[in-house]
Amino acid sequence: MTRIDIGAEEDFPLEEGVYIGHEKTGGEPIAVFRTDEGIYALNDRCTHGNYSLSEGWVEDGTVECPKHASSFCLANGKVLNLPATEDAPTHTVEVVDGRVLLTPQF
């Protein structure tokens, strides 16, 4: 699996999602979220429908899909409420020397 440099840490605003397109991930688009607790990566597409989790509401270690308000745990991708019923796939992401490194798990 390839580790990809997707930018400097400061390019990832706190409590917001950043969209990483398929041309970078080599597969599905990925949403990367930085919070005070850490940095997390989930498949960008909500498991309920065609909507981008990177545009979601980040709070308390979760992201809420803006479309129909299903929430997912940032740490493990677990779906927390309907209408989505499937967990969001997670990916490995870390900050090394101020750079954000993403390892997609496709």
Binding site: E55, W57, E64, P66, K67, A69
Partner: peptide, 9 residues
């Protein structure tokens, strides 16, 4: 403008 509704909630 979905985030408006998320915020308003």
């Amino acid at each position: 403008e979905q985030l408006i509704i998320r915020a308003a909630t």
